[in-house]
């Protein structure tokens, strides 16, 4: 369990969470990037960039 960097609410990560993955805060809806899983560290996810895609 860790906390949302935007609203401070508790955020639980799935067991298979990966660094680099994006999770949503169920309280405020912020997109958060998993920086580390052990211990869990979250940061506000980067904004969408124009060159993102496939």
């Amino acid at each position: 369990m860790t906390t949302c960097t935007e609203c401070g609410a508790d955020v639980a990560l799935h067991d298979d969470a990966e660094a680099g993955e994006i999770v949503d805060c169920t309280t405020c809806g912020a997109e958060l990037e998993v920086i580390d899983v052990s211990p869990p560290v979250l940061e506000k996810a980067p904004e969408l960039e124009e060159d993102w895609g496939e």
Partner: peptide, 14 residues
């Protein structure tokens, strides 16, 4: 190489 792990990358990693 990545800058974001999407479901696609998780499937691949797994």
């Amino acid at each position: 190489l990545y800058s974001r792990i999407r479901t696609d990358e998780k499937l691949l990693l797994s």
